Simulated assay, not measured.
Amino acid sequence: MLDFGFDKIALIGAVALIVIGPEKLPRVARTVGTLLGKAQRYVADVKAEVNRSIELEELQKMKSQFTSAVHDAERSVREEVDSATGALNQTWRDVTNDGSPTSYESIGLAPSLPEYRHPKKNWRLKRGATPLWFKQKAGVRRHSQSGAARVARFRPPGRT
């Protein structure tokens, strides 16, 4: 940038003192200082904005690389699954259509899976089947109570 040594700054100060005068020099120096400060802040803001844009571009590159890697992995997994499924289906067709006497069709049996049946569990029935004496002994709450009602219920007799 600009290279200012001590001798150049002293020369500029002497010329400013002669041209501007000793009364107005402090005010001019303050004004120049504030303008230089604003300029430095503006340069710092521009640098920060440039750095943010560079980081954003880097993040976008990383995102595109990551998404391409994910798509490649997904494609390779899908190809492997498809090839394994094809091989399994081919093996199943070979086993079921080989014409040997041990196949299901030759002995008159068709392979079938059992039909799904819901277990018909009713947790309310199970919970209601617990005896009342056991619930009382185990301290199971059967009804909700507020704190004040619970205190009033368990207050010793004779106290009000």
Rank of each mutant, 00 (worst) to 15 (best):
L25N: 00
V28F: 15
L11Q: 15
L109M: 15
P114D: 01
R117Q: 09
I9N: 09
T102Q: 06
G37A: 14
A44W: 14
A14Y: 03
G33I: 01
K126C: 07
K24D: 13
V151D: 04
R30G: 03
S83A: 13
W92S: 07
P22L: 12
R141P: 02
L17K: 14
R27S: 13
V70L: 10
Q65D: 15
V151I: 11
A110F: 10
V46F: 05
K24G: 08
L36F: 09
H143I: 05
I20R: 00
S83W: 02
E80Q: 12
R93Q: 13
L35T: 07
K63Y: 15
G37V: 04
L2K: 13
F4R: 14
E58P: 00
T67M: 06
Y116D: 01
S112T: 13
Q60M: 13
A69N: 11
R153S: 09
Q136V: 03
V43Q: 08
A110Y: 10
L36H: 06
S100I: 00
L132W: 12
A48H: 06
A148C: 04
D7N: 07
L132S: 09
L56H: 06
E79H: 02
N89G: 02
A29M: 14
A149E: 13
N89A: 11
K137A: 09
P114I: 01
R155A: 13
L17F: 11
A69F: 08
S76E: 11
D82L: 05
F154Y: 11
L25C: 02
K38Y: 15
Y116I: 01
A48T: 12
S103M: 04
P26H: 01
I9D: 08
V28H: 10
R52A: 14
S64H: 14
A148R: 11
R142Y: 08
K126P: 00
S76L: 05
